[in-house]
């Protein structure tokens, strides 16, 4: 078993290399592709020989650079949150979107915007944290998340119920609030990365650093807890404390991702499984690799969304759902839904 683990760890550098290469290629593609295609030499010129009067240069620097950065950061946040949730619940289907954490953040953000007239992302990211935390706690208790290894479906059902309620509530608030709220959140509620600006990028970056660092420091403890609560206790861990801190990191990561890009599902489900296929179950490699892969996934979804219904755009969250749903079904069919 030790050799197996060692072998898997030795494959981690390969995973990082592939992930980074894919990210670079996708970033280049996302600069070039859109309702107004821009050839790559022109993209290069936008950075090397910037002309403020050139429309194409403006599009690349003002619109597409923040958008690509946001996709990578939000994806990374969702991927890490998904990995932590799968580790804590030992449930291969755990994910911030499916379990209603993103829905909670969305509800809080929309309520904050409707009640207090907030418009800046730096303001409503706090509501995102709050909503993600509340929804996460509710689903964890309702679904008995810490015993989810024994009854994996219960957690999913609790999440589905919560998502239905929160989704309907978000629609109701948006319908009944003023026109400016409708305008702000119409694209956002579908999970769109369009026109979020650099403020969203910075907010997400800060949250990713804090939440990601917290998750990474927890990784060894989560590895130990994967063998079960009593085994973890015997190894000298405090399961409750670790669960609490893990939930805090999920709250920061998923709350910020939802506040900046809207509720996006399935990215946090797919990326950890891809990463696990490369490195095996060690959370120390799984967390950064999932973040890298998830960033690539969301960026891919965003690029597809720009092409598939051109000249209109499809929000990245919707593309992620259409592509991620079949993967979910695959996991349901493949795994014996017992323990991870």
């Amino acid at each position: 078993m030790t050799t197996g683990l060692a072998l898997a760890r030795s494959r981690a550098p390969l995973g990082y290399a592939v992930g980074l290469a894919a990210t670079v290629l996708l970033v280049l593609a996302s600069f070039a592709v859109g309702s107004r295609p821009i050839p790559l030499p022109e993209v290069a010129a936008a950075f090397a020989a910037y002309q403020p009067g050139n429309d194409l240069h403006l599009i690349v620097r003002e619109l597409r650079v923040p958008r690509a950065l946001l996709a990578i950061l939000v994806g990374a946040g969702l991927g890490m949150a998904g990995t932590v949730m799968q580790a804590v619940t030992r449930n291969p289907l755990a994910e911030p979107g499916l379990l209603g954490v993103n829905g909670g953040a969305a509800m809080a953000v929309v309520l904050g915007a409707a009640a207090f007239g907030l418009t800046a992302v730096t303001q409503f990211v706090w509501f995102g944290f709050l909503g993600a935390g509340l929804a996460g706690a509710a689903v964890f208790f309702l679904g008995r998340g810490h015993q989810s290894g024994a009854d994996p479906v219960r957690l999913l059902l609790a999440g589905a119920g919560l998502s239905i309620v929160l989704g309907a509530a978000v629609s109701l608030v948006i319908l009944n609030a003023g026109l400016e709220v409708l305008d702000t959140f119409r694209g956002w509620s579908a999970g769109s990365l369009e026109g979020r600006g650099m403020a969203a990028v910075w907010t997400m970056a800060v949250a990713l650093v804090i939440g990601g660092a917290l998750a990474l420091t927890l990784a060894p403890s989560l590895n130990a807890l994967a063998m079960g609560e009593s085994m973890g206790r015997a190894l000298g861990l405090h399961p409750q404390r670790i669960w609490g801190l893990a939930c805090l990191s999920v709250m920061i990561l998923a709350g910020a991702a939802t506040a900046t890009a809207g509720p996006i599902g399935f990215v946090g489900l797919v990326a950890p499984h891809m990463a696990r296929a490369v490195t095996g179950p060690d959370n120390r490699d799984l967390l950064p690799l999932s973040a890298l892969f998830a960033g690539c996934l969301l960026l891919t979804a965003d690029i597809i969304g720009r092409v598939i219904v051109a000249p209109d755009e499809l929000a990245a969250g919707i593309v992620a759902t259409i592509l991620g749903g079949p993967f979910f079904i695959y996991v349901v069919r493949r795994f014996r839904l017992a323990r991870l």
Binding site: L314, I322, F328, I329
Partner: peptide, 13 residues
């Protein structure tokens, strides 16, 4: 649940 999610996405598209 999985099929429902995919179809919701298709509906929006």
């Amino acid at each position: 649940i999985g099929c429902g999610a995919v179809l919701t996405g298709v509906n929006t598209m």
